[in-house]
C-alpha cells in the first residue's frame, strides 16, 4: 500500500458515502445518473469476484464489500425508494448504457493477460469502469444547476482513478512491478473523460461560483 493508492481508495470511499448522504438527507437523486450507478454495480460485481477466492487483507475485503453494498444501495434508492425515485431525472438520463457493456466484454475477450473467467471478468470491469461515468457527465451537461454535493461526488470519483495512476507509477518504479498496460490505459481513458469536468469544477471553485458545464 502506498499513499497514492490509500488516497485514491479514500477518495473513492468518500465519493460513494457523499452520494449516499446526499440521497438520504435530501431524499433526492436529482442530477444523478442511474445508468452510471448501474454500470458501477456491474463493474464491482465483475471485479470483486475474487472476494470469495482470495484473501488479501482485512482492508481489501472490507472495502470490496463496502463498494458493492453502497453501489447496490444507491441503485435501490433511485429505483425503488418511493420518495427518491420521483426525483430521478428519467427524461434527461437517456444514455443507453447497456450499449457499452457488450463492446467492453468483447474487448476483454480479445485483450487480456490470461484467458480465464476471473481474469476476463476483471479486465471487463476495468474497461467498463473507464466509460461508466459517461451517462453521468452527459446528464450533468443537461442539468441546469448542479448542486455542490453532486459536483463534489463526481470530483472525488474522478480523483480516485487519477490517484491510482500515480500509484501505478510509484509501484512501477519503486516496487519494480511489471507493466500493467490494461490497468494503465483503462485508468488513463477513465481520468481523461473527467478532464473538462475537472476544468470547470476547479474554475467554479476558484471563482467561488456555481458549477456549470457548457451544454
Amino acid at each position: 500500500m502506498n499513499i497514492f493508492r490509500l488516497a485514491g481508495d479514500m477518495s473513492h470511499l468518500l465519493s460513494v458515502i457523499l452520494l449516499l448522504l446526499k440521497i438520504r438527507t435530501t431524499k433526492s437523486c436529482a442530477g444523478i445518473s442511474l445508468k452510471t450507478q448501474e454500470l458501477y454495480v456491474v463493474v464491482f460485481l465483475a471485479r470483486y469476484l475474487n472476494l470469495f477466492t482470495r484473501y488479501y487483507s482485512f482492508y481489501n475485503t472490507v472495502m470490496k464489500l463496502v463498494f458493492i453494498a453502497t453501489s447496490v444501495c444507491i441503485v435501490w434508492y433511485m429505483r425503488f425508494h418511493k420518495v427518491v425515485k420521483q426525483t430521478y431525472n428519467k427524461d434527461l438520463d437517456t444514455f443507453r448504457h447497456y450499449v457499452v457493456i457488450p463492446p467492453c466484454f468483447l474487448l476483454a475477450l480479445l485483450v487480456h493477460h490470461e484467458f480465464t473467467v476471473m481474469e476476463v471478468l476483471w479486465t471487463f470491469s476495468l474497461y467498463l469502469e473507464a466509460v461508466a461515468i459517461l451517462p453521468q457527465l452527459i446528464l450533468l451537461q443537461r442539468t441546469r444547476n448542479i448542486d455542490n454535493l453532486t459536483g463534489n461526488y463526481i470530483f472525488l470519483l474522478g480523483a480516485y482513478r487519477a490517484l491510482y495512476l500515480l500509484n501505478w507509477i510509484y509501484r512501477f518504479f519503486m516496487e519494480k512491478a511489471q507493466a500493467r498496460w490494461i490497468s494503465w490505459i483503462s485508468g488513463l481513458v477513465q481520468t481523461a473523460l473527467y478532464a473538462d469536468f475537472f476544468y470547470y469544477y476547479i474554475k467554479s471553485w476558484k471563482n467561488n461560483e456555481k458549477l456549470k458545464l457548457p451544454a
Partner: peptide, 10 residues
C-alpha cells in the same frame, strides 16, 4: 503470468 500484484488493488 496474471498480474497478481494488481489484484490486491480495488
Amino acid at each position: 503470468t496474471p498480474e497478481e500484484g494488481v489484484k490486491d488493488e480495488l
